[in-house]
Every structure is written in structure tokens, then in C-alpha cells.
Simulated assay, not measured.
Amino acid sequence: MEAGNVEALTVRVDLSAIRGNLAAVRALAGDRIVMACIKGNAYGHGLVPVARCLEAAGVPWLTLGSPGEALALREAGITTPILLFPTIAGFDLKRHVGAGITIGVQSAAEAAALAPQAAAPVSVFLKIDAGFGRVGAPLPVAASEAREIARLPSVTLAGLFTHLPFFSEESVAWVQERLKAFGEVAGTIQGDAGRRLVVQALASTGLASGLDAPSTNAVCPGSLLYGVQPTWTSASGQHIDVAGLRPALVEVTSIVGSLRTIAAGERFGPGGARSAARATRLGVMPLGFSNSILVRKPGQRVGIAGRSAPVLSVSLEHTVIDVTDATPIAEGATVHLLSRDGAVGPTLEDIARAQDRATVEILVALTGKAAYAYVS
């Protein structure tokens, strides 16, 4: 852990990997617009530094779902167009509209409510629910909602988008049928508008799978930009592997905050539930449920002094590991919670398997409760 850092976690991110992953995504996207998704603190990689990296690389759009994160980008000097996904109905977006942020809406009524908050025409994207059943104008009424938006005097309909996540080969036929239905509605709306709109339907998995998205001219990848392969397995057990991806998360580390030795046969742990089979050296890290999900339960492993050490217990702000086989070590020793290549600690995939979680869940849990360092 770096001198002067008082955080329990240090996260190191490789910005050159993000640039390389963007190049791989652009190759998949062809002539379609790449709208870079940076929601969830840029998937745990640090919102503003990642946004600056993508802006410098010429990404035409940044997308996210947090009103606070959208404003943070403008306050940090990011000038790239930003699409804010639909948020809570009635949320005060006056500052966002004033900052030139494009607002995702689900209806003409939502778009109309934005007009009094703006000194200039408001740019909106209409979110269409193509079958996911979560957010957006239902397909049967989407065209009429778009026509109503077009009639609003202080609102400009700039684009359309939908979201159809899927995780297995068995879902592909349904997703492809829904994409076709979305494309038909999008084509109608574009015809009514008499001009070219930004139309997006594919995210990371759909893009990597090579699905056809009629009437669209944009893609909105998220996890691919950070070097995470799609969570998708075919019936035959095959995985999608996108060429050219490299994980941008180099490592996550903590420290041994204190050390103690438990004698053989001594009981310890919550309720004295454990008994030391041998003289055991315990290391205590200053992190727990309150600031990390990288270690969540006993049995996971971390790296220390070139050895693998098991996690014995996790509480609100402390994690106890068995460092007996890693001695001699001192307080302040670095603990590798995550390692990109697995050389000094578990990989992201190792952690996801140990916790039975998706890799993206692990990433987005990396929030402001960490010190970030960036390398290129």
C-alpha cells in the first residue's frame, strides 16, 4: 500500500488496456457509433479517469445511470455528450439539463416535464422496452410516444435505445426476435422524424455474439471496455471470447493491519467456533463487509508474500487470514486480493466463482472506498 494512503483498499487500473479494449470493440462495431457505458463508477475502475481516457480516445458518447455521476463528469470538465439513462420519475434534473446532459425518458410526459427546467431545447433519448420488462415505453406505444415528443416545442428527440441482456445460447432466438421487433418500431419512428436518429440496441453480449440489430446505428458496450469477456455459455459448453481484450483491473491490494499467534488447540473466532490445529499466525486486514465484497466468506484465498492464504472470517470492518505459511511477514505487509494474471493473488474470475457471483458484480462493488492508482 502506498505511503500516506489510509484507505483499506488500493485499486490499480491500466488505462492502456481500456484503450486497447476500445479498439477491439470498434472492430466489432464496424461503422456503428460506440456509446461507452461507464455506469457504476466505470464498472469499478474510477469514473472520471476512465471518462477522460475515453474522451481522449474520441468516444462520441458516454452513458450512465446515476444523476450524481453525470454531474460529476461535467464538474470534472468532461465535454463529451452524456446520455443519462431513465431515472426516478419526477427527479429534479434542472442542473443536468443546464449542463447539456441528454436525458433518457420513457414517455412524452417525462420529456414534457423537462421543458420548464431548461433555458434551451432539451435533448432526449426515448428508452423503449423491447421485452425485458423493466424500463421504457412498451413497443406497441413507442411510436406514438415518439410522435408526441416531436411535437414538444422545447424538446429534441435525439435517439432511441433499448436493453436486452441475455446469458445463454437458449435465449438467442428470443433476443433476435425482440431486436427485429424493436428495429421495425425504430424504423417507423425514424421515418416519422424525417431525420437520422442515434438508435442503439446491442450491448456487450449482443455485440460479441454478432446478433443482427435492424435499423440501429449504435452500440453501447460496458464490460467489454474493461476487458471482461461476456458471461455467456452455449449448450455445448462453449464460451464467447472476444479477441484483443485485456482486463484493465491490474490488482486490488490491502494490508495486514495486525498480527497475532494462536496456540495449538486454542479456540478462537466468532463464538470460539474454531480450534487451531497447530500454532497459527493470524493476519487482520482493515476491510470487511462495509467496504469490499472481494472477500466475503471463509474459504476464499488471497495472496501474501508469494503464498496463497485462506480467509478464516469476515466481519463488518475486519478480515482474518491464516498467514502461518507466509511467515515471516510484518504488519503493513501487502495482501493481494485480486491479481490480473493470477500470479500473486486470485483473478477476478476466481473471486466470482468462489462467491457464485457474476464478474460484473465484483467490479461495480469497487466504489469510492478505495485509493485508485492509474498506469498506462
Rank of each mutant, 00 (worst) to 15 (best):
V175R: 09
R196H: 05
G194A: 01
E169V: 01
G187T: 03
A208M: 06
I189M: 12
Q200G: 07
K180P: 05
L224G: 03
A213N: 11
T205G: 02
S209V: 01
A208N: 15
A218F: 13
S215I: 11
E177P: 01
L197Y: 00
G210D: 06
A181R: 08
L211K: 09
E177W: 08
R196V: 13
Q176A: 12
G191Q: 13
A201T: 08
A173R: 14
G227K: 09
L224R: 13
Q176S: 14
A181G: 03
V175C: 07
R196W: 04
V198I: 14
P214E: 09
V198M: 07
L225P: 05
S171I: 07
Y226C: 09
K180E: 12
S168G: 11
G183R: 06
S215G: 04
A173I: 09
V199Y: 04
E184D: 11
T216D: 09
T216M: 04
L207K: 07
F182Q: 11
S204P: 10
I189Y: 02
V185I: 06
F182N: 01
L207P: 00
A186T: 03
V228T: 11
I189L: 15
Q176P: 08
G191S: 14
S204V: 11
L207E: 07
L179D: 06
S215Y: 04
D212W: 03
A193P: 00
E184A: 05
G194C: 07
S204T: 14
T216N: 12
S223R: 14
G206M: 09
T216P: 06
T205Y: 15
A213V: 11
E177L: 02
E169W: 00
P221S: 06
G194S: 13
R195Q: 10
S215L: 12
D212N: 13
T205E: 03
S171T: 02
L225I: 13
S215A: 15
V172Q: 14
R178V: 00
L179N: 03
R196S: 15
T205P: 03
E170V: 08
P221G: 12
R196A: 12
S209D: 03
R195Y: 04
S168K: 09
A181F: 04
P221F: 05
A193L: 12
T205N: 08
S168P: 04
K180N: 05
L225D: 03
V198Y: 02
L179E: 10
Q200L: 13
F182D: 10
E170D: 14
Y226D: 06
A193E: 12
E184F: 02
A173F: 02
Q200S: 15
G183F: 09
S204F: 11
A186D: 11
T216S: 14
Q200P: 00
V185W: 02
R178P: 04
R195L: 04
G191R: 14
G191L: 09
R178D: 00
C220P: 04
G183W: 09
S223A: 04
V172K: 11
S223I: 05
P221R: 08
L207G: 08
L197F: 03
L202D: 05
V219M: 14
L211E: 08
L211Y: 15
A203L: 10
D192P: 04
